[in-house]
Design a protein around this nucleic acid. Sequence first.
RNA 1: CGGGGCGUAGCGCAGUCUGGUUAGCGCACUUGACUGGGGGUCAAGGGGUCGGAGGUUCGAAUCCUCUCGCCCCGACCA
Length: 579
Amino acid sequence: MRYTSALIPTLKEAPSDATSQSHILLLRAGYVRRVGAGIYSYLPLGVRVLRRVERVVREEMDRAGALEVSLPALLPSEYFKETGRWDVFGDILFRLKDRKGSDYHLGPTHEEIITDMARREIHSYRDMPRNLYQIQSKFRDEPRPRGGLLRCREFSMKDAYSFDSSEDAARASYEKMRIAYTRIFDRMGLTYRMVSADSGAMGGSGSAEFQVLVQSGEDFIAACSSCDYAANLEVAETPARAPTGDGSQLPPRERVSTPGQRTIEEVSTFLRAEPARFLKSLLYVAGTEVVMAVVRGDHELNEIKLARALGVGDVFLASEEDVRKATGAAVGFAGPVGFAGKLLVDRDAMNVIDGITGANETDAHFIHVQPGRDFEARVADLRSVKDGDPCPSCGQTLKVYRGIEAGHIFLLGTHYSDKMGATYLDESGTSRPIVMGCYGIGVSRLIATTVEQFNDSDGIAWPISLAPYQVHVVQLGAEPEVVAAVTELERELEARGLEVLVDDREERPGVKFKDADLIGVPLRITVGKKALDRGGVEFKPRSERDPKKAELVLLGDAADLAAQWVKDRLAALTPESSP
RNA sequence: CGGGGCGUAGCGCAGUCUGGUUAGCGCACUUGACUGGGGGUCAAGGGGUCGGAGGUUCGAAUCCUCUCGCCCCGACCA
């Protein structure tokens, strides 16, 4: 592609509403443009990257035996009404009516539609296993789209669904997808972790997220530094701490005045006691009930764990009014001692010796509190793991990272097939529900995620597998020998199957180099009179920051060297081919 | 949904508080000259319903009301 025929509108300045690195760079380098909140157009470069991501995903899905289908994005409401998700999805659904007034919506995900396909077309155990996938636009009216392509209202997703005749077979299908996913992310060169996660609203028994580790990530994950344990902070575990001492000689608890001292930080400064001795008492509404949850002052309560311990779907922090009603004190002075309602205490909080807690009386706390002596409670794992906690699987240290969820695989079981009557006949002629799994990859999100991980102060530096072009030829000057060399080089590179961008603009060298760095094509070959006089052209990988490190190669060798360079880079990312 | 902020040329912004020539600046764009290995210089240009509607006024980008859009933070860790 000749730059003078291309549409690559690079910008010196980023639009002011772009915040994340990927958003800024994808806009500046001319890959995408914003059309509305969380809605983007792809310019030619953007489409090329999108196709690259899709290609890797398709190749690995096909390798794993999945079959590509295409489901509609515009959906009549009846399917989501069948499973109840017409209501469950709430405001996330983009809803619309047709001219007759019937309800429709744009598909946020396609379990129902694919289950409908399965119940129509899969009738026998002989028809399974099957795995159907598609790459398609999804629509979700996100409460807050953000980060450019990271969280959009219209986005491209690969979604796959497996159909099996038993739990065991479904687990095997799930395992195949797990392997396919690791191959996909490996081929993209991403630094990521597969983590266990909350299966949330999807229902089902098992799930794993593929989290790409980047500073700007929305999710927190805990990963072990020595074994392969990794989990979303929502569900990450750590063993309970042993009691720090012996509480048997502790003096009786004592009420102390703490006027206006509400937060752990304030009270801990006021009483000169470290936060780990505090019993942080939070009031939550679970269903119709107000419950008190207690964690150590230096720990964070995990709402998902609390909800699970209570056997409810969701918990909400109680309002100021509810706190007063339940404890008889202002917010900031709640405590488990003498609390009349339902009380849950974290394991580590239960092991605190000589604790401090609110006295359920405004401007007062208790000191010398001993769990078990001063109050009894139901004990559970309620707190989030924090940096430095021991790993539940090997005992080494956990570290907390930020990540972007790029993929998620679920074992669904028979959740959807039960609701929608997707059954098959087994060998004995008995009708049974199909066992399902579902597997998503955020295709457009991966573009942004990749840029988050592969950029520097000059621009993007694509991994070879996703780059819009593999070679960027920079033509300097318009002398006949330069033009001839560029034309010859372009032909030779393309003859070797490489995708080439040739900057043939009448621009100053500085402009061309800046644009090349911004766009991020992995290999740059500079053709100018200077180098030609020395017999060649200059090679420089985008990842090499120092311009002086450009390597002079003979013009006649350039195409072969470039082809080899690209091949080596691709090979480095490609996992061993498994049978 | 709560809080904050912003809509003026393709992009980045000034002007708005304190109403008053023809609405400015930088980048980008067009033309020309010089220049020519990391975002050059000079000159001459083109480009604006000042988000929209209504109102106040002799006069509105500026004041008032309504409205639309967008961005950020938060969505409760006492």
